[in-house]
């Protein structure tokens, strides 16, 4: 692997790792592990933990994929590995 391809892959792994940590936090951590303490915080009529488990995590997933697609497309251009 040449230098730029290696750097491109490293940048990719870094981005994916960050996004997957958020993925874990919004679903497993907020929705399941910390659900009781978070439920003491109310948004409207819902506990925050309950909201993350049934609605919030899904919205976060959408943002994650959007950010990933946007950042990766930018990385492609930056490292000149984009498609013609």
């Amino acid at each position: 692997m040449n230098k730029t391809a290696e750097q491109y892959w490293k940048a990719n792994i870094r981005l994916v790792s960050i996004l997957l940590v958020i993925w874990f936090i919004c679903s497993f951590l907020f929705g399941i592990i910390l659900v009781e303490p978070l439920n003491t915080i109310k948004i409207g009529g819902l506990g925050l933990g309950f909201w993350f488990a049934q609605n919030g995590s899904i919205y976060t997933f959408l943002v994650l994929i959007y950010v990933y697609a946007k950042r990766m497309n930018a990385l492609d251009v930056e490292f000149d590995v984009h498609e013609d």
Binding site: N55, S57, L64
Partner: peptide, 13 residues
């Protein structure tokens, strides 16, 4: 709800 949507993050990334 989480299981059948969160998989798309894995799929995309």
């Amino acid at each position: 709800l989480m299981g059948w949507t969160g998989g798309y993050v894995l799929l995309a990334l």
